[in-house]
Design a protein around this nucleic acid. Structure first.
Lengths: 253, 253
DNA sequence: TATCTTTGTTGACATATCGCACAGGATTAC
DNA sequence: GTAATCCTGTGCGATATGTCAACAAAGATA
Protein backbone atom coordinates (compact mmCIF):
# COMPACT_ATOMS: atom_id res chain seq x y z
CA UNK A 1 0.00 0.00 0.00
CA UNK A 2 1.28 3.41 -0.90
CA UNK A 3 0.36 6.67 0.77
CA UNK A 4 -2.02 8.63 -1.43
CA UNK A 5 -2.81 12.29 -1.37
CA UNK A 6 -6.22 11.56 0.14
CA UNK A 7 -4.73 9.92 3.22
CA UNK A 8 -2.86 12.97 4.45
CA UNK A 9 -4.36 15.19 7.10
CA UNK A 10 -3.34 18.71 6.33
CA UNK A 11 -4.23 19.99 9.77
CA UNK A 12 -1.92 17.60 11.55
CA UNK A 13 0.99 18.27 9.22
CA UNK A 14 0.52 22.01 9.63
CA UNK A 15 0.26 21.78 13.39
CA UNK A 16 3.50 19.82 13.66
CA UNK A 17 5.18 22.37 11.43
CA UNK A 18 3.94 25.06 13.80
CA UNK A 19 5.50 23.29 16.79
CA UNK A 20 8.82 23.06 14.94
CA UNK A 21 8.87 26.81 14.35
CA UNK A 22 9.49 27.21 18.09
CA UNK A 23 13.28 26.93 17.92
CA UNK A 24 15.76 27.81 20.63
CA UNK A 25 16.12 31.36 19.38
CA UNK A 26 12.39 32.03 19.14
CA UNK A 27 10.69 30.59 22.23
CA UNK A 28 7.93 33.25 22.24
CA UNK A 29 6.04 33.89 19.03
CA UNK A 30 2.93 35.79 18.02
CA UNK A 31 0.44 34.47 15.51
CA UNK A 32 2.05 36.43 12.71
CA UNK A 33 5.53 35.23 13.66
CA UNK A 34 4.40 31.63 13.36
CA UNK A 35 2.57 32.30 10.12
CA UNK A 36 5.69 33.84 8.60
CA UNK A 37 7.99 31.09 9.89
CA UNK A 38 5.78 28.25 8.72
CA UNK A 39 4.43 29.76 5.52
CA UNK A 40 0.86 29.24 6.72
CA UNK A 41 -1.98 31.69 6.45
CA UNK A 42 -2.39 33.76 9.60
CA UNK A 43 -5.88 32.40 10.12
CA UNK A 44 -4.59 28.83 9.88
CA UNK A 45 -1.62 29.47 12.15
CA UNK A 46 -4.01 31.01 14.65
CA UNK A 47 -6.21 27.92 14.69
CA UNK A 48 -3.19 25.64 15.10
CA UNK A 49 -1.89 27.69 18.01
CA UNK A 50 -5.26 27.91 19.72
CA UNK A 51 -5.62 24.16 19.35
CA UNK A 52 -2.18 23.59 20.86
CA UNK A 53 -3.07 25.90 23.72
CA UNK A 54 -6.40 24.19 24.27
CA UNK A 55 -4.70 20.77 24.41
CA UNK A 56 -2.10 22.01 26.88
CA UNK A 57 0.90 21.99 24.54
CA UNK A 58 1.17 25.78 24.47
CA UNK A 59 0.46 28.76 26.65
CA UNK A 60 -0.94 32.09 25.54
CA UNK A 61 -0.78 35.45 27.28
CA UNK A 62 -3.11 37.06 24.75
CA UNK A 63 -0.26 38.07 22.48
CA UNK A 64 2.56 35.54 22.54
CA UNK A 65 2.52 31.77 22.53
CA UNK A 66 5.05 29.58 24.38
CA UNK A 67 5.39 25.80 24.32
CA UNK A 68 4.78 23.97 27.59
CA UNK A 69 6.74 21.01 28.98
CA UNK A 70 3.90 18.85 27.72
CA UNK A 71 5.41 18.81 24.22
CA UNK A 72 8.32 16.89 25.72
CA UNK A 73 5.91 14.01 26.05
CA UNK A 74 5.75 13.74 22.29
CA UNK A 75 9.46 13.18 21.91
CA UNK A 76 10.47 11.39 25.06
CA UNK A 77 8.05 8.55 24.45
CA UNK A 78 10.25 7.80 21.45
CA UNK A 79 13.51 8.00 23.37
CA UNK A 80 12.11 5.90 26.20
CA UNK A 81 10.75 3.30 23.82
CA UNK A 82 14.16 3.00 22.27
CA UNK A 83 15.97 0.33 24.28
CA UNK A 84 19.26 1.82 23.23
CA UNK A 85 19.78 4.44 25.98
CA UNK A 86 19.20 1.94 28.75
CA UNK A 87 21.39 -0.68 27.09
CA UNK A 88 24.36 1.50 26.24
CA UNK A 89 24.41 3.73 29.35
CA UNK A 90 26.18 1.27 31.68
CA UNK A 91 28.82 0.47 29.06
CA UNK A 92 29.21 4.18 28.40
CA UNK A 93 29.67 5.01 32.07
CA UNK A 94 32.25 2.26 32.49
CA UNK A 95 34.18 3.33 29.40
CA UNK A 96 34.11 6.96 30.45
CA UNK A 97 35.49 6.09 33.89
CA UNK A 98 38.20 3.89 32.39
CA UNK A 99 39.57 6.35 29.86
CA UNK A 100 38.72 9.55 31.73
CA UNK A 101 36.99 11.17 28.75
CA UNK A 102 33.41 12.14 27.91
CA UNK A 103 31.67 9.51 25.77
CA UNK A 104 28.41 9.61 23.83
CA UNK A 105 26.15 7.52 21.63
CA UNK A 106 24.08 9.08 18.87
CA UNK A 107 21.89 8.03 15.96
CA UNK A 108 21.47 9.59 12.54
CA UNK A 109 18.32 11.53 11.59
CA UNK A 110 18.55 12.95 8.10
CA UNK A 111 21.73 15.01 8.05
CA UNK A 112 21.87 15.46 11.82
CA UNK A 113 23.05 13.30 14.68
CA UNK A 114 20.83 12.96 17.75
CA UNK A 115 22.40 12.12 21.11
CA UNK A 116 20.69 9.21 22.83
CA UNK A 117 23.08 8.67 25.74
CA UNK A 118 26.07 10.43 27.23
CA UNK A 119 28.57 10.02 30.05
CA UNK A 120 30.14 13.41 30.71
CA UNK A 121 33.46 13.72 32.48
CA UNK A 122 34.50 17.29 32.04
CA UNK A 123 32.83 20.03 30.16
CA UNK A 124 34.70 20.05 26.86
CA UNK A 125 32.11 21.71 24.70
CA UNK A 126 30.66 25.19 25.01
CA UNK A 127 27.09 24.04 24.57
CA UNK A 128 25.46 21.53 26.87
CA UNK A 129 24.88 18.19 25.16
CA UNK A 130 22.14 15.92 26.41
CA UNK A 131 19.96 13.11 25.06
CA UNK A 132 17.93 14.66 22.26
CA UNK A 133 20.55 17.28 21.41
CA UNK A 134 21.35 17.62 17.71
CA UNK A 135 24.48 18.45 15.78
CA UNK A 136 25.08 18.41 12.03
CA UNK A 137 26.51 15.15 10.72
CA UNK A 138 28.97 16.54 8.19
CA UNK A 139 31.43 17.90 10.76
CA UNK A 140 31.10 15.42 13.64
CA UNK A 141 32.95 12.15 14.14
CA UNK A 142 29.76 10.21 14.85
CA UNK A 143 28.01 11.79 11.89
CA UNK A 144 30.78 10.79 9.49
CA UNK A 145 30.86 7.24 10.79
CA UNK A 146 27.14 6.85 10.23
CA UNK A 147 27.16 8.59 6.86
CA UNK A 148 29.93 6.22 5.81
CA UNK A 149 27.60 3.30 6.46
CA UNK A 150 25.02 4.62 3.98
CA UNK A 151 25.17 4.09 0.23
CA UNK A 152 27.39 6.87 -1.09
CA UNK A 153 24.61 8.47 -3.15
CA UNK A 154 22.30 8.53 -0.15
CA UNK A 155 24.93 10.20 2.03
CA UNK A 156 25.59 12.76 -0.67
CA UNK A 157 21.89 13.54 -1.09
CA UNK A 158 21.45 14.10 2.63
CA UNK A 159 24.50 16.33 2.89
CA UNK A 160 23.54 18.42 -0.12
CA UNK A 161 20.09 19.06 1.33
CA UNK A 162 21.42 20.96 4.35
CA UNK A 163 23.89 23.81 4.88
CA UNK A 164 27.51 23.14 5.81
CA UNK A 165 28.81 26.25 7.54
CA UNK A 166 32.50 26.52 8.47
CA UNK A 167 32.09 26.27 12.23
CA UNK A 168 35.84 26.66 12.68
CA UNK A 169 38.75 27.37 10.30
CA UNK A 170 39.30 23.58 10.17
CA UNK A 171 35.77 22.56 9.16
CA UNK A 172 35.51 20.72 5.85
CA UNK A 173 32.68 22.37 3.93
CA UNK A 174 33.13 21.45 0.27
CA UNK A 175 31.11 18.43 -0.80
CA UNK A 176 34.04 16.59 -2.37
CA UNK A 177 36.23 17.15 0.68
CA UNK A 178 33.55 15.79 2.99
CA UNK A 179 32.75 12.87 0.71
CA UNK A 180 36.45 12.00 0.40
CA UNK A 181 36.81 12.04 4.18
CA UNK A 182 33.72 9.85 4.51
CA UNK A 183 35.26 7.37 2.06
CA UNK A 184 38.39 7.34 4.19
CA UNK A 185 36.30 6.74 7.31
CA UNK A 186 34.48 3.91 5.56
CA UNK A 187 37.80 2.28 4.68
CA UNK A 188 39.44 2.58 8.10
CA UNK A 189 36.35 1.92 10.19
CA UNK A 190 36.54 4.95 12.47
CA UNK A 191 36.54 8.73 12.30
CA UNK A 192 38.76 11.32 13.93
CA UNK A 193 37.78 14.98 14.11
CA UNK A 194 40.22 17.73 15.05
CA UNK A 195 38.50 21.00 15.96
CA UNK A 196 35.98 20.99 13.11
CA UNK A 197 32.94 21.41 15.34
CA UNK A 198 34.40 23.82 17.83
CA UNK A 199 37.86 25.20 18.49
CA UNK A 200 39.70 23.19 21.11
CA UNK A 201 37.51 20.11 20.74
CA UNK A 202 38.67 16.79 19.27
CA UNK A 203 36.74 13.56 19.03
CA UNK A 204 36.80 10.12 17.50
CA UNK A 205 33.99 7.71 16.77
CA UNK A 206 33.32 4.11 15.79
CA UNK A 207 30.10 2.62 14.43
CA UNK A 208 27.75 0.59 16.63
CA UNK A 209 26.26 -2.40 14.86
CA UNK A 210 23.48 -4.76 15.75
CA UNK A 211 23.85 -8.51 15.58
CA UNK A 212 23.10 -8.44 11.86
CA UNK A 213 25.97 -6.08 11.17
CA UNK A 214 23.79 -3.06 10.36
CA UNK A 215 25.17 0.26 11.60
CA UNK A 216 22.47 1.69 13.86
CA UNK A 217 24.38 4.25 15.93
CA UNK A 218 27.82 5.62 16.70
CA UNK A 219 29.96 5.76 19.82
CA UNK A 220 32.47 8.53 20.40
CA UNK A 221 34.78 10.15 22.88
CA UNK A 222 35.44 13.86 23.09
CA UNK A 223 38.47 15.56 24.60
CA UNK A 224 40.07 18.95 24.70
CA UNK A 225 42.75 19.52 22.10
CA UNK A 226 46.06 19.14 23.91
CA UNK A 227 49.79 18.76 23.30
CA UNK A 228 49.46 15.07 22.40
CA UNK A 229 48.65 14.77 18.69
CA UNK A 230 45.13 13.53 18.08
CA UNK A 231 46.51 10.75 15.88
CA UNK A 232 48.41 9.31 18.87
CA UNK A 233 45.36 9.59 21.08
CA UNK A 234 43.39 7.80 18.41
CA UNK A 235 45.69 4.79 18.19
CA UNK A 236 45.83 4.58 21.98
CA UNK A 237 42.07 4.77 22.60
CA UNK A 238 40.68 3.16 19.45
CA UNK A 239 40.88 -0.37 20.94
CA UNK A 240 38.82 0.82 23.91
CA UNK A 241 36.07 2.15 21.67
CA UNK A 242 36.13 -0.93 19.49
CA UNK A 243 35.93 -3.20 22.50
CA UNK A 244 32.78 -1.47 23.72
CA UNK A 245 31.30 -1.55 20.22
CA UNK A 246 31.94 -5.28 20.01
CA UNK A 247 30.44 -5.84 23.44
CA UNK A 248 27.30 -3.92 22.48
CA UNK A 249 26.94 -5.61 19.12
CA UNK A 250 25.09 -8.59 20.53
CA UNK A 251 22.84 -6.46 22.73
CA UNK A 252 21.37 -4.11 20.13
CA UNK A 253 18.71 -4.99 17.63
CA UNK B 1 -10.13 36.65 23.63
CA UNK B 2 -11.35 33.24 24.64
CA UNK B 3 -10.88 30.03 22.70
CA UNK B 4 -14.12 29.02 21.03
CA UNK B 5 -15.16 25.65 19.71
CA UNK B 6 -14.71 26.90 16.16
CA UNK B 7 -11.03 27.61 16.66
CA UNK B 8 -10.02 24.04 17.50
CA UNK B 9 -8.61 21.79 14.84
CA UNK B 10 -9.71 18.27 15.58
CA UNK B 11 -7.19 16.72 13.27
CA UNK B 12 -4.23 18.24 15.04
CA UNK B 13 -5.49 17.29 18.48
CA UNK B 14 -6.11 13.73 17.33
CA UNK B 15 -2.70 13.44 15.72
CA UNK B 16 -0.92 14.56 18.88
CA UNK B 17 -2.95 12.06 20.86
CA UNK B 18 -1.80 9.41 18.42
CA UNK B 19 1.85 10.30 19.01
CA UNK B 20 1.32 10.06 22.76
CA UNK B 21 -0.03 6.53 22.45
CA UNK B 22 3.50 5.43 21.55
CA UNK B 23 4.67 4.86 25.12
CA UNK B 24 7.76 3.01 26.26
CA UNK B 25 5.92 -0.28 26.48
CA UNK B 26 4.33 -0.03 23.04
CA UNK B 27 6.90 1.26 20.57
CA UNK B 28 5.40 -0.66 17.61
CA UNK B 29 1.70 -0.35 16.97
CA UNK B 30 -0.69 -1.32 14.19
CA UNK B 31 -3.53 0.90 13.06
CA UNK B 32 -5.99 -0.95 15.27
CA UNK B 33 -3.68 -0.73 18.28
CA UNK B 34 -3.52 3.02 17.96
CA UNK B 35 -7.26 3.29 17.40
CA UNK B 36 -7.94 1.33 20.57
CA UNK B 37 -5.36 3.24 22.64
CA UNK B 38 -6.52 6.65 21.51
CA UNK B 39 -10.24 6.03 21.24
CA UNK B 40 -10.23 7.21 17.64
CA UNK B 41 -11.97 5.57 14.75
CA UNK B 42 -9.68 3.22 12.86
CA UNK B 43 -10.07 5.20 9.68
CA UNK B 44 -9.03 8.36 11.50
CA UNK B 45 -6.14 6.70 13.27
CA UNK B 46 -5.00 5.38 9.91
CA UNK B 47 -5.01 8.84 8.37
CA UNK B 48 -3.10 10.25 11.33
CA UNK B 49 -0.46 7.55 11.10
CA UNK B 50 -0.07 7.86 7.34
CA UNK B 51 0.30 11.60 7.74
CA UNK B 52 2.96 11.13 10.43
CA UNK B 53 4.77 8.68 8.17
CA UNK B 54 4.54 11.01 5.20
CA UNK B 55 6.00 13.88 7.25
CA UNK B 56 8.84 11.71 8.51
CA UNK B 57 7.69 11.41 12.11
CA UNK B 58 6.88 7.71 11.80
CA UNK B 59 7.96 4.68 9.87
CA UNK B 60 5.75 1.97 8.45
CA UNK B 61 6.62 -1.55 7.41
CA UNK B 62 3.17 -2.17 5.96
CA UNK B 63 1.82 -3.45 9.24
CA UNK B 64 3.38 -1.69 12.20
CA UNK B 65 4.22 1.94 12.80
CA UNK B 66 7.23 3.19 14.77
CA UNK B 67 8.13 6.74 15.70
CA UNK B 68 11.34 8.14 14.23
CA UNK B 69 13.92 10.35 15.99
CA UNK B 70 12.31 13.25 14.19
CA UNK B 71 9.59 13.48 16.85
CA UNK B 72 12.36 14.45 19.27
CA UNK B 73 12.50 17.72 17.38
CA UNK B 74 9.06 18.60 18.65
CA UNK B 75 10.04 18.35 22.27
CA UNK B 76 13.65 19.38 22.31
CA UNK B 77 12.89 22.73 20.75
CA UNK B 78 11.08 23.43 23.99
CA UNK B 79 13.91 22.19 26.22
CA UNK B 80 16.49 24.08 24.20
CA UNK B 81 14.48 27.27 24.23
CA UNK B 82 14.25 27.03 27.97
CA UNK B 83 17.26 28.88 29.35
CA UNK B 84 17.06 26.89 32.53
CA UNK B 85 19.18 23.85 31.61
CA UNK B 86 22.09 25.97 30.46
CA UNK B 87 21.83 28.26 33.48
CA UNK B 88 21.56 25.62 36.17
CA UNK B 89 23.94 23.00 34.74
CA UNK B 90 27.21 24.62 35.93
CA UNK B 91 25.85 25.19 39.41
CA UNK B 92 24.54 21.63 39.44
CA UNK B 93 27.90 20.16 38.39
CA UNK B 94 29.73 22.17 41.05
CA UNK B 95 27.28 21.18 43.76
CA UNK B 96 27.43 17.55 42.74
CA UNK B 97 31.23 17.56 42.90
CA UNK B 98 31.22 19.28 46.28
CA UNK B 99 28.79 16.99 48.05
CA UNK B 100 29.54 13.82 46.09
CA UNK B 101 25.89 13.08 45.33
CA UNK B 102 23.73 13.09 42.22
CA UNK B 103 21.77 16.33 41.81
CA UNK B 104 18.90 17.28 39.51
CA UNK B 105 16.60 20.13 38.58
CA UNK B 106 13.04 19.53 37.44
CA UNK B 107 9.89 21.46 36.65
CA UNK B 108 6.25 20.59 37.27
CA UNK B 109 3.92 19.57 34.44
CA UNK B 110 0.48 18.68 35.70
CA UNK B 111 1.02 15.99 38.32
CA UNK B 112 4.42 14.96 36.98
CA UNK B 113 7.91 16.32 37.36
CA UNK B 114 10.08 16.68 34.25
CA UNK B 115 13.87 16.61 34.59
CA UNK B 116 15.55 19.54 32.86
CA UNK B 117 19.12 19.08 34.07
CA UNK B 118 21.07 16.50 35.99
CA UNK B 119 24.56 15.90 37.32
CA UNK B 120 24.94 12.19 37.98
CA UNK B 121 27.58 10.88 40.33
CA UNK B 122 26.74 7.28 40.89
CA UNK B 123 23.85 5.29 39.62
CA UNK B 124 21.44 5.36 42.54
CA UNK B 125 18.24 4.65 40.68
CA UNK B 126 17.28 1.58 38.69
CA UNK B 127 15.94 3.58 35.77
CA UNK B 128 18.07 6.01 33.82
CA UNK B 129 17.05 9.61 34.44
CA UNK B 130 17.82 12.22 31.82
CA UNK B 131 16.48 15.60 30.76
CA UNK B 132 12.91 15.01 29.67
CA UNK B 133 12.39 12.03 31.97
CA UNK B 134 9.19 12.09 34.00
CA UNK B 135 8.26 10.88 37.45
CA UNK B 136 5.01 11.36 39.39
CA UNK B 137 5.01 14.37 41.69
CA UNK B 138 3.18 12.86 44.67
CA UNK B 139 6.06 10.60 45.74
CA UNK B 140 9.14 12.64 44.79
CA UNK B 141 10.93 15.29 46.80
CA UNK B 142 10.97 17.76 43.93
CA UNK B 143 7.32 17.09 43.17
CA UNK B 144 6.25 17.80 46.75
CA UNK B 145 8.26 20.98 46.90
CA UNK B 146 6.61 22.29 43.75
CA UNK B 147 3.13 21.12 44.73
CA UNK B 148 3.62 22.94 48.04
CA UNK B 149 4.09 26.16 46.12
CA UNK B 150 0.69 25.86 44.44
CA UNK B 151 -2.59 26.91 46.05
CA UNK B 152 -3.69 23.94 48.13
CA UNK B 153 -6.85 23.36 46.08
CA UNK B 154 -4.87 23.34 42.85
CA UNK B 155 -2.38 20.82 44.21
CA UNK B 156 -5.21 18.61 45.40
CA UNK B 157 -6.97 18.76 42.02
CA UNK B 158 -3.83 17.75 40.17
CA UNK B 159 -3.09 14.88 42.53
CA UNK B 160 -6.63 13.55 42.42
CA UNK B 161 -6.57 13.50 38.62
CA UNK B 162 -3.79 10.90 38.45
CA UNK B 163 -3.15 7.52 40.06
CA UNK B 164 -0.93 7.20 43.14
CA UNK B 165 0.37 3.64 43.20
CA UNK B 166 2.39 2.41 46.21
CA UNK B 167 5.75 2.19 44.47
CA UNK B 168 7.31 0.89 47.71
CA UNK B 169 5.92 -0.09 51.13
CA UNK B 170 6.83 3.44 52.28
CA UNK B 171 4.97 5.38 49.58
CA UNK B 172 2.27 7.71 50.85
CA UNK B 173 -0.79 7.05 48.69
CA UNK B 174 -3.80 8.41 50.60
CA UNK B 175 -4.77 11.94 49.61
CA UNK B 176 -4.87 13.27 53.16
CA UNK B 177 -1.46 11.78 53.96
CA UNK B 178 0.09 13.33 50.87
CA UNK B 179 -1.61 16.69 51.42
CA UNK B 180 -0.49 16.72 55.08
CA UNK B 181 3.09 16.02 54.02
CA UNK B 182 2.86 18.78 51.41
CA UNK B 183 1.67 21.19 54.11
CA UNK B 184 4.67 20.19 56.23
CA UNK B 185 6.98 20.75 53.25
CA UNK B 186 5.41 24.17 52.65
CA UNK B 187 6.06 25.11 56.28
CA UNK B 188 9.66 23.94 56.50
CA UNK B 189 10.70 24.94 52.99
CA UNK B 190 12.19 21.65 51.86
CA UNK B 191 11.18 18.04 51.32
CA UNK B 192 12.84 14.79 52.35
CA UNK B 193 11.86 11.46 50.80
CA UNK B 194 12.92 8.13 52.27
CA UNK B 195 12.46 5.24 49.83
CA UNK B 196 9.03 6.24 48.58
CA UNK B 197 9.97 6.18 44.89
CA UNK B 198 12.20 3.15 44.96
CA UNK B 199 13.65 0.95 47.67
CA UNK B 200 17.11 2.06 48.71
CA UNK B 201 16.73 5.58 47.32
CA UNK B 202 16.49 8.74 49.43
CA UNK B 203 16.35 12.31 48.28
CA UNK B 204 15.75 15.86 49.43
CA UNK B 205 14.66 18.92 47.51
CA UNK B 206 14.35 22.68 47.83
CA UNK B 207 12.37 25.04 45.61
CA UNK B 208 14.07 27.19 42.96
CA UNK B 209 12.63 30.68 42.73
CA UNK B 210 13.03 33.44 40.20
CA UNK B 211 13.85 37.00 41.21
CA UNK B 212 10.16 37.69 41.88
CA UNK B 213 9.95 34.84 44.37
CA UNK B 214 7.85 32.55 42.20
CA UNK B 215 8.69 28.86 42.49
CA UNK B 216 9.55 27.74 38.97
CA UNK B 217 11.51 24.54 39.55
CA UNK B 218 13.05 22.33 42.21
CA UNK B 219 16.58 21.22 43.02
CA UNK B 220 17.34 17.91 44.66
CA UNK B 221 20.00 15.45 45.61
CA UNK B 222 19.58 11.70 45.56
CA UNK B 223 21.59 9.15 47.49
CA UNK B 224 21.48 5.52 48.40
CA UNK B 225 19.82 4.76 51.72
CA UNK B 226 22.67 4.12 54.17
CA UNK B 227 23.41 3.73 57.84
CA UNK B 228 23.30 7.49 58.46
CA UNK B 229 19.68 8.52 59.15
CA UNK B 230 18.25 10.60 56.33
CA UNK B 231 17.29 13.30 58.84
CA UNK B 232 20.98 13.80 59.71
CA UNK B 233 21.95 13.89 56.06
CA UNK B 234 19.25 16.47 55.52
CA UNK B 235 20.45 18.88 58.18
CA UNK B 236 24.02 18.48 56.98
CA UNK B 237 23.34 19.04 53.27
CA UNK B 238 20.34 21.38 53.39
CA UNK B 239 22.55 24.50 53.57
CA UNK B 240 24.35 23.38 50.41
CA UNK B 241 21.09 23.05 48.49
CA UNK B 242 19.78 26.34 49.83
CA UNK B 243 22.99 28.12 48.89
CA UNK B 244 22.68 26.99 45.29
CA UNK B 245 19.00 27.91 45.24
CA UNK B 246 19.85 31.40 46.48
CA UNK B 247 22.63 31.76 43.94
CA UNK B 248 20.29 30.77 41.10
CA UNK B 249 17.47 32.99 42.29
CA UNK B 250 18.81 36.05 40.52
CA UNK B 251 19.61 34.19 37.32
CA UNK B 252 16.23 32.64 36.57
CA UNK B 253 13.25 34.48 35.16
C1' DT C 1 -2.27 64.73 12.97
C1' DA C 2 -2.84 62.02 8.94
C1' DT C 3 -1.35 58.13 6.47
C1' DC C 4 0.48 53.75 5.89
C1' DT C 5 1.65 48.93 7.95
C1' DT C 6 1.02 45.35 10.62
C1' DT C 7 -1.86 42.42 13.39
C1' DG C 8 -5.75 39.78 15.15
C1' DT C 9 -10.27 38.43 14.04
C1' DT C 10 -14.35 37.21 11.40
C1' DG C 11 -17.33 35.58 7.41
C1' DA C 12 -18.18 32.99 3.16
C1' DC C 13 -17.46 29.36 0.27
C1' DA C 14 -14.96 25.49 -1.78
C1' DT C 15 -12.79 21.56 -0.16
C1' DA C 16 -10.91 18.25 3.06
C1' DT C 17 -11.88 15.30 6.84
C1' DC C 18 -14.72 12.36 10.19
C1' DG C 19 -17.04 8.53 11.42
C1' DC C 20 -19.90 5.01 9.79
C1' DA C 21 -20.76 0.99 7.14
C1' DC C 22 -19.19 -2.47 4.27
C1' DA C 23 -15.91 -5.42 1.25
C1' DG C 24 -11.97 -8.14 0.79
C1' DG C 25 -8.01 -10.49 2.84
C1' DA C 26 -5.56 -12.64 6.55
C1' DT C 27 -5.55 -15.34 10.64
C1' DT C 28 -7.50 -18.32 14.00
C1' DA C 29 -10.75 -21.77 15.90
C1' DC C 30 -13.01 -25.81 15.54
C1' DG D 1 -12.43 -27.18 5.12
C1' DT D 2 -15.39 -23.94 6.85
C1' DA D 3 -16.87 -20.60 9.93
C1' DA D 4 -15.73 -17.09 12.90
C1' DT D 5 -12.91 -13.26 13.93
C1' DC D 6 -9.99 -9.80 13.17
C1' DC D 7 -7.73 -6.30 10.38
C1' DT D 8 -7.17 -3.05 6.64
C1' DG D 9 -8.75 -0.24 3.02
C1' DT D 10 -12.46 2.51 0.82
C1' DG D 11 -16.94 4.88 -0.55
C1' DC D 12 -20.27 8.18 1.24
C1' DG D 13 -23.01 11.95 3.38
C1' DA D 14 -22.60 15.31 7.04
C1' DT D 15 -19.59 18.22 9.07
C1' DA D 16 -15.29 20.60 9.96
C1' DT D 17 -11.35 23.08 8.01
C1' DG D 18 -8.44 25.94 4.81
C1' DT D 19 -8.16 29.76 2.02
C1' DC D 20 -9.17 34.16 0.77
C1' DA D 21 -10.85 38.59 1.45
C1' DA D 22 -12.44 42.15 4.29
C1' DC D 23 -12.22 44.91 8.50
C1' DA D 24 -11.10 47.12 12.91
C1' DA D 25 -7.54 48.21 16.00
C1' DA D 26 -2.98 49.18 17.16
C1' DG D 27 1.61 50.78 15.88
C1' DA D 28 4.75 52.93 12.90
C1' DT D 29 6.14 56.68 9.82
C1' DA D 30 6.05 61.05 8.01
Amino acid sequence: MTITERDIMGGLAKGLAVIETFAADRPRQSISDVAAASGLDRATARRCLLTLAHQGYAEWDGKFFTLTPRVLRLGTACLASMPMPAIVQPALDALSDRIGQSTSVSILDGAEIVYVARAAQRKVMSIALMPGSRLPAYCTSMGRVMLAALPEAEAQTRLEASPRPARTPFTLTEMDQVMAEIARVRAQGYSVIDQEVEMGLCSMAVPLMNARGQVIAALNLGRAAGPEPMADVATRLLPELQAVAAQLRGLLR
